[in-house]
Design a protein around this nucleic acid. Structure first.
Lengths: 364, 364
DNA sequence: TTGAAAGCGCTAACAT
DNA sequence: ATGTTAGCGCTTTCAA
């Protein structure tokens, strides 16, 4: 298993290492006959270019660091999948760094990645404030794009969904379906998504003259907080609960039902993100779907822009519009599909899905 | 932002590059006074070792390839988290490769990782048969450990939960709680986990003299298949449904309830894996918890063994015993906690959990 | 178009 | 304990 090097390919094909390099990396013109000989030699020796040596010389590893607060957060796996795909399209691989929701760990992971000479960083910051120094320092050294959450103005290019528009869509939907007295269950966290969603809720109250503007409960982005918040609200005074993410909404629905409320009959409940769980709860959750593939593609595009040196002076901040997904937690289904048998044919073998990933079809 | 190199540190500290290298990589003894000077110089220059150069010279990148069928499968994120932690403890970083459930993509990802000179590979194979050649070839080049799913005998070291024991625990629990006529909903897939779980169910029927041994439905590992399987069984003839994973169980519960059955009153339902969703369904799912952290630790240990050249002739196959988690889908809860208010205090800021990750506390 | 030679930044022999 | 030297495998000037 001793590795085959360029030299050996050169020897076998009877030309110099530089020619072989030119053929295999395809940077410079080479005579077609020589090129053929070289390729044949490489093939027959089972030559695999050593990316480490290539990286040292060319000062580019073809590697991007993916820095996440917590991979187990159910919103991230789909995003990671699309990011790795988008990076792969550019021949890049992702070095994964999980920060365990800790900004010190985040700083350590980023330092490690810089030592490994990643070409760029894709960061979902742990904390809007505590991550700022880490992100700013890193952005000064390598191309960096922030994802999903902000980190102060002008720190780096960023891509995120427009949280405000998402909440606005939810509130219009609720108003249009006859809800009059909403409440909000959100998060008091140190990330920009939490703040934007809460602010948008308050703004959206303009649609609800009868609403109590004080019916806002802020905790964290968890199922348990959703449950607890229900006990802090006076459920019967509200006919809708807008939640800052799906986990909260799942907790809210659970607790409302335990307390005898009908969802959506008595109370409509909405989430945000459209995690895989959202369509599997009973009732299924009306929520705001993040355009995950597009977010990933935009992030990759911003990275490419920076990597190719086209990055102008000002930072770019891309905001994508999310999509409202209406399910049974806000409206009764038009067809009582409980009476219909389920259609399903198991997939044969392991065919690739070429299209978007369907979370209900994940296999273990 | 021009990078500081060893030479500059050497110049500033007034000694040679090799001395500096020895101090900073800590391989060889160095006089304590010189060491201090070197460290001070490195610090003041903001020196960051270039891992690419180090890798080229030392023939080790400190990088492990993590090859997954599909990161969006809800069982994997927790595993990935623990794997990255375990690798980090050894100073290694993970290069993530998602295969989109496609064995050709898997082969391509593995080839790419080998070109990047990963020190080792951690592979969850896509398909027991189609992945074999890829895995075998890779295992001949670098240390490799299979995780979760097998890939034929003696192909590589492997770590997995003992699927059979998990199903046996489930069946003993069902028998002990008075169930008499179980059915099984599993997967016909090309992976060893599916086969082992199905075989264990058949073996476990010894506890159920009244059971119909033909009540076995095989499809795939999805929620939709779980729903469809209910329509193929005759629900009223069964008082328990053993499912091969949690997604199937979630589908089974949904469909049973739509058809008017009480879970667990009429029918008990069990899953496998204990994905985060399992505790969030209504009723919460009795399931078999995979010891994720231990699986990750064992995998890392096997890698270390191979990397340090202690690997003896025979392949090792580590099997860990899973844990039965009893929830409301098989037994009525002892306390009617629906009447109790929920206890919850949002976490302040972003403290790290030091212990095991609690999926209900994930934040977005 | 091709070859010879330099060198990316570091570690590991080999000296001292 | 420290310095000198030779590469790791590749890309890229610079010549021819």
């Amino acid at each position: 298993m001793t590795d085959v090097t360029l030299r050996e390919v050169a020897r076998l094909s009877g030309c110099s290492v530089s020619t072989v390099s030119r053929v295999l990396s395809g940077n410079r013109p080479v005579g077609s006959e020589t090129a053929g000989r070289v390729r044949a030699a490489a093939e027959s020796l089972g030559y695999v270019p050593n990316q480490v040596a290539r990286s040292l010389r060319s000062r580019s590893t073809g590697t991007v660091g993916l820095v996440l607060p917590q991979i187990a957060n159910p919103y991230y796996p789909a995003l990671v999948r699309e990011l790795t795909r988008a990076l792969l399209a550019g021949g890049r691989a992702a070095l994964l760094a999980d920060c365990d929701d800790d900004s010190e760990a985040e700083a350590a992971r980023v330092a490690d990645l810089l030592g490994r000479r990643v070409d760029a960083l894709l960061v979902i910051p742990v904390d809007e404030h505590r991550s700022r120094a880490t992100v700013a320092d890193a952005a000064a050294r390598v191309p960096l794009v922030l994802l999903d959450r902000g980190c102060g103005p002008q720190v780096a290019d960023s891509v995120a969904v427009d949280h405000g528009v998402g909440i606005a869509m939810v509130m219009e939907h609720l108003a249009a379906t006859g809800r009059r007295r909403p409440a909000f269950v959100g998060a008091a966290g140190n990330d920009s998504a939490a703040a934007e969603r809460a602010a948008a809720y308050t703004a959206g109250l303009a649609h609800f003259p009868q609403a109590d503007p004080g019916a806002v409960e802020l905790g964290d982005f968890s199922v348990e907080w959703g449950r607890a918040a229900v006990d802090r609200l006076r459920p019967l005074r509200h006919d809708a609960v807008v939640c800052a993410n799906d986990l909260i909404a799942i907790g809210v629905i659970q607790r409302l039902r335990e307390r005898g409320a009908d969802v959506p009959g008595d109370v409509a409940v909405t989430g945000f993100d459209d995690i895989p769980m959202a369509r599997l709860t009973v009732p299924a959750l009306t929520t705001v779907r993040q355009p995950v593939r597009e977010l990933a593609a935009e992030a990759a595009a911003l990275l490419d822009r920076q990597l190719s040196g086209q990055a102008g002076g000002a930072r770019r901040s891309v905001r994508l519009t999310p999509e409202l997904v209406v399910r049974a937690s806000t409206v009764h289904p038009p067809v009582a599909d409980a009476a219909l048998p389920t259609q399903h044919t198991p997939r044969a073998g392991s065919e690739a899905d070429s299209g978007a990933h369907d979370p209900a079809k994940e296999t273990q």
